[in-house]
Design a binder for these strands. Sequence first.
DNA 1: AATTAATAGTGGCATATGCCAGTAATTAAC
DNA 2: GTTAATTACTGGCATATGCCACTATTAATT
Lengths: 151, 151
Amino acid sequence: MPKDAFSATSACNYATVRRAARKLGQFYDDIVGPSGLKATQQGLLYQISATGAPTMGEIASAMIMDLSALGHTLKPLIRDGYVETVADSQDRRIRRVRLTKGGEKKLAEAMKLWKVAQQRLEDRIGAEKAERLRSALDEIAKLDLDEPIAS
Amino acid sequence: MPKDAFSATSACNYATVRRAARKLGQFYDDIVGPSGLKATQQGLLYQISATGAPTMGEIASAMIMDLSALGHTLKPLIRDGYVETVADSQDRRIRRVRLTKGGEKKLAEAMKLWKVAQQRLEDRIGAEKAERLRSALDEIAKLDLDEPIAS
DNA sequence: AATTAATAGTGGCATATGCCAGTAATTAAC
DNA sequence: GTTAATTACTGGCATATGCCACTATTAATT
């Protein structure tokens, strides 16, 4: 048995992506953490900030995330005063999400750290390689994998 | 504003990996789900099965997962009788993990579905491309990203 | 207009994952 | 050979994520 019998290079695309996600989570969290935000939260605040005052459905769709999962994830950010939701005046079913002043400030703080993490990672693997990797992952994210009903 | 203004191609490597992970999770879960296992659980059972009777630390290390997180994740599988842990006779701190008969059976069932998902995905993106993607992700997973102490 | 269908979220429950503070057991130090 | 580290987990708490059932609103039907 090879010494690194437990290095686990799985053939499963899903397992491989999740393993890399955990690794990157450790890395980005270590660096972004001092801002008080998890890297996931920084990413979510960024997504909100970058798209104006998106509705929950728009955010969920963009992030390929379940709507209710998004709702759950927003809770601590709302509790901590970084985010607020306002009912749309046209359609009261819709809730638009936006950063508070404090949220913008906190995001700015976290983004500085994010840049350090991003840069440090790309110094290691190469910006071009990272670019290709993201491109491949985005391709997967955009696939229409609805049951082909191969009847 | 383009119709897919919320398609979100982030520059963040971590966000991109997580988004793809969610997408793949939906896909693999849809197909593996009928076995009664989540794709994550199928992957974990496979990892245990593939490495004999690994210790928790070995599994966690191989999966780049926090040891306590692994412990939590194992609980439903132990509760459902698919996995059991046995104290090592040499070193009683160590708990070896292994599949029960029922766990092996369930894994075999789930693996059939996993193969369908894996094949269907690779039919879409190309086996070679998937191979390259996993390779790139494994490279990240293996990086030594300990704080370089850039003092 | 009243009913039905569709849309947008919320809340409950469950798994996934991580950090930190113990606990148990083994090893290293003195 | 006791005491001080180290190792391997466990448990509690918190966030991340998803499914399903339910509520609130708006749009579509008849």
